[in-house]
C-alpha cells in the first residue's frame, strides 16, 4: 500500500469477488432492471411479515447479502467483517440486518456516499490483512426516507424540478485479498467535507457537487492521471443539476469530463419516471455499482473506471436550524477483471 496525499494505492489490489443488488418497483421499471439480482413489486414485503418501512429496508438488505454470499459461494459464518450503512436515523436498517446475520459489524454513515465509503474502508482493511472476506453494503428505501426526513407518504406535495428521488435499493459487495478472482480495487481516496453554503434541501446535487470536484482534483493531482485515462467516471447521485454543475466546473478547472456518468441519472429514466432531477440515496449508487459497473468490469466492457459516491451530511435538525448542507465524496478506482 502506498499513500499519495489523500489517495491510497494498492500495489497488491484487493478484489470485489461477488456482488448483488436488490430493488423495488420503480427500479424494476428503470433502464438497469435486468442487472438486479432481486426485484419486488411491493417493497413493503407484507408476506415477509415486515410491519413497517424500516423493517422492509432491512429485509431488502438481507436479500442483497444473501444473494451476494451465495454468488461468492460462502456462508455468512465465513465473513470476517461487514461494513454497512443506510439513510435511516442511527443506521437502523443495517443494525437490524446485522442482528439477523450475526457477522462482526461496523456501522457507517456517509449518507449517499456510503457505498464508496464502505468500499474505501473495506479495500484498505482487506489489503492490510485485517479481513479476508469482507462485506461492504448499503441501502435506502424511498418510504423510510420520506417518512423520516420529509413528510408522510400520503401527504400531498409537489416536488420541485431539482429534487431527487430516494432509491428503494440495496447493494452488497464481498471483498477479498489480492490474487483472487474478482474486480480489482486499484486505489481509494477518502474525501474531505466541502460546504459551499447551499441551503436548499431540494437541491442536494448542487450541495454535493463541490465535494465531487474536490475529491476528483485531489485524486488526479495525487496520481498524475487525467479523465481520459478512464473509460467512465461515475459519480453517485448528483442528479441532472449536480452533474451539469460538475461538468461545468471541471471544464473550468482544465479537466473536462466527457466520459462522466451519474448513478442518479442511470438508475431511472429521468425523462419518463417522474423522479425529477434523478435518483439519490445510498442504495442508488450501490445499485448502479452492482447492476452495471461491476458486471461491465467483469465482462471486460470497461478496463478502468472511477466510482465516486457523494453524500450530503446534514440532518433534519441542522437543516431546520439554518445550517448549510456539507457534502463529501469518496472515490474508488476499479479495473477490469483480469487486467491487473
Amino acid at each position: 500500500m502506498i499513500r499519495r496525499k489523500d489517495t491510497v494505492l494498492f500495489d497488491k489490489p484487493p478484489v470485489i469477488a461477488a456482488w448483488a443488488a436488490a430493488g423495488g418497483k420503480k427500479e424494476s421499471e428503470g433502464p438497469l432492471a435486468a442487472g438486479f439480482d432481486f426485484l419486488t413489486e411491493d417493497a413493503a414485503f407484507p408476506e415477509e411479515a415486515c410491519a413497517n418501512w424500516e423493517q422492509a429496508e432491512s429485509f431488502l438488505q438481507q436479500k442483497a447479502v444473501e444473494i451476494c454470499l451465495r454468488k461468492a459461494g460462502i456462508s455468512r459464518k465465513e465473513v470476517d467483517l461487514a461494513l454497512a450503512g443506510d439513510l435511516q436515523a442511527q443506521c437502523t436498517a443495517s443494525n437490524y440486518t446485522m442482528r439477523a446475520l450475526e457477522i462482526p459489524f461496523a456501522g457507517l454513515y456517509g449518507a449517499c456516499s456510503t457505498m464508496a465509503e464502505s468500499l474505501c474502508l473495506g479495500a484498505s482493511l482487506t489489503a492490510g490483512g485485517v479481513a479476508h472476506q469482507l462485506l461492504a453494503m448499503t441501502s435506502s428505501h424511498f418510504c423510510a426516507a420520506e417518512r423520516q426526513f420529509r413528510t408522510p407518504l400520503d401527504y400531498g406535495a409537489k416536488r420541485t424540478p431539482t429534487a431527487q428521488w430516494t432509491a428503494t435499493a440495496a447493494g452488497a459487495c464481498l471483498l477479498r485479498g489480492a490474487g483472487q478472482k474478482g474486480v480489482p480495487v486499484l486505489s481509494v481516496t477518502f474525501g474531505r467535507v466541502q460546504d459551499y453554503e447551499v441551503h436548499d434541501i431540494n437541491n442536494m446535487g448542487a450541495a454535493m457537487m463541490p465535494a465531487a470536484v474536490s475529491t476528483l482534483l485531489r485524486y488526479f493531482g495525487a496520481t498524475g492521471t487525467a479523465p481520459s485515462d478512464f473509460d467512465v467516471i461515475f459519480t453517485g447521485d448528483l442528479g441532472e443539476v449536480g452533474s451539469a454543475l460538475l461538468q461545468e466546473q471541471m471544464a473550468r478547472e482544465g479537466l473536462p469530463l466527457p466520459n462522466h456518468r451519474d448513478c442518479g441519472c442511470l438508475l431511472y429514466d429521468v425523462a419518463s419516471q417522474n423522479v425529477q432531477a434523478g435518483g439519490s440515496g445510498p442504495g442508488c449508487s450501490a445499485a448502479v455499482l452492482c447492476t452495471h459497473i461491476l458486471p461491465a468490469l467483469q465482462k471486460g466492457q470497461y478496463r478502468r473506471v472511477l466510482f465516486m459516491a457523494t453524500g450530503a451530511l446534514m440532518s433534519q435538525t441542522t437543516f431546520l436550524q439554518g445550517e448549510s448542507i456539507p457534502g463529501i465524496a469518496h472515490c474508488v478506482e476499479l479495473a477490469g477483471e483480469g487486467t491487473v
Binding site: 409537489k158 420541485t160 424540478p161 431539482t162 466541502q194 459551499y196 453554503e197 447551499v198 437541491n203 448542487a206 463541490p210 470536484v213 474536490s214 482534483l217 443539476v241 451539469a244 454543475l245 461545468e248 466546473q249 473550468r252 478547472e253
Partner: peptide, 25 residues
C-alpha cells in the same frame, strides 16, 4: 476549486431548472 460560495450560488441558480410556473398555476 476555483470558486467561492457566492459565485457558486449564481452557478447553481443558472443550472437549476425553474418550476414550470404557467403549467403549475
Amino acid at each position: 476549486m476555483k470558486l467561492n460560495p457566492k459565485e457558486y450560488a449564481h452557478m447553481v441558480s443558472r443550472a437549476s431548472p425553474p418550476s414550470p410556473a404557467v403549467r403549475d398555476c
